[in-house]
Design a protein around this nucleic acid. Structure first.
Lengths: 229, 229
DNA sequence: TCTATTTTATAAATCCCTTATAAATAGCGG
DNA sequence: CCGCTATTTATAAGGGATTTATAAAATAGA
């Protein structure tokens, strides 16, 4: 993930300042709110990747803010609080907090706990989908669709198509493709490549004689193009 | 999730006993290991839903155990340690720990942090009820129904099916499935997987020869699909 | 003891490579 | 520019190796 955004909801200005400096110098984008009302509004208007919430807000009980956030907000919420009694900690965690840190806190530990929380929630965001005209390649799911109909490709066909699609518009030389798909020992087996290109075209092209996606660059290699947009 | 399994890796027998009683009375299934070696073996042979790891083990550094676990283990790991210095805490969190609690700990807080950690790892998996065509999987109740008729699955069959269903649409590689269901020592036992896939198909597919749910991706793995909507 | 898992054995399916041949393209001399 | 040849590309089809499916027996575990 690139530059995670963190929202700080805390009424103490010096804490906000400290957090802002610490987090910004660690490459996070920081937003701030000084009370519950603004915190909830800011979170809704521009949902951050993580929220750091103080329990002792002036206008509303922090536990209640936490509950309201958790009605819709699924990213990590870390509680920062001066309260160190077990009941509050348990209540906050059971209200959906991911972590609870007692003030005063150690900056390094806070940062490590933030990294841990973000690391955990980052897993799902790894979508990488390539779309070219009617063709959609979902690299995470390892599936190919044409007009929302899934197309079944063999392992080698998939490797080849995803390599071409990842380099959309670029001419890839025979030797390069052979090395990437079959391995460095196969750079002279151009016939493999022709056979598999033909198979791919049969599966994804409307008319294999007039290919719209996989273009032959005679003597050089192949090129995957998107002529729809 | 009902009856989550937690593995405790700690050399102090009184801590293990205390945790065992506390966790069992809170409806968790508890496994124990008294050193790093046995902990790693137990985790591999029977991957738990969560691991509680003491950093001060007699036979190996806890941070090293943590790193080894994180090479394959994706569920929560909570560190329990007498060490309260920031460097150890940061190192553990950056090595992949989800939480770090200093001994002596408050039992209620520990339980709340366990609930929080398990809640999070369950949230990644999405809904607790998965519906695909005629098949309904209730992850909380650990039951499978087909057209409202409940289907009896063994523990391994259930693990395998729920793993596939949680990743509906995604191709899961043999090695990944084997690691998640059987443990990392089994990544080459593809035959186990074939046997259990066949058993599952016999139970949930109308015609095992033309599977509608569990699709074979030859040379790669398997994929669970929902072709009804 | 009984059930679930692992192992073994074998049939079936699938995929990759190979070969053969046709088609397209490039090169070149006139 | 044309026509010829050489090179490159396209595509079908089959053999053989690998991968997968399935039953059934052996083992382990509760």
């Amino acid at each position: 993930m690139n530059k995670a955004e963190i929202l700080i909801i805390d009424d103490e200005v010096q804490i906000r300042k400290l957090l802002e400096i610490t987090l910004q110098s660690n490459n996070y984008i920081v937003n701030q709110a000084e009370n519950a009302k603004n915190g909830l509004i800011t979170a809704e208007n521009h949902p951050p990747d993580m929220i750091i919430l103080d329990l002792g807000l002036p206008d509303e009980d922090g536990q209640s803010v936490l509950q309201k956030l958790r009605e819709w907000y699924t990213n990590p919420i870390m509680i920062l609080s001066v309260k160190n009694n077990e009941a509050d900690i348990i209540r906050a965690l059971d209200n959906g907090a991911n972590d609870y840190l007692v003030k005063p806190f150690r900056t390094g530990e806070l940062l490590a706990r933030i990294r841990s929380a973000l690391r955990n929630s980052a897993a799902d965001d790894g979508e990488s989908i390539i779309t070219c005209g009617e063709i959609t390649i979902d690299l995470a799911a390892r599936t190919i669709k044409k007009n929302n109909e899934s197309i079944k490709l063999t392992a080698t066909e998939y490797k080849l198509l995803s390599l071409l699609a990842k380099n959309e518009g670029k001419v890839l030389m025979h030797q390069y493709i052979l090395r990437e798909v079959w391995g460095p020992g196969y750079i002279n087996q151009s016939q493999y490549l022709r056979v598999f290109i033909a198979q791919l075209r049969k599966k994804i092209e409307a008319d294999a004689n007039r290919p719209e996606y996989i273009i032959t660059e005679s003597g050089i290699g192949y090129r995957f193009i998107n002529n729809r947009d």
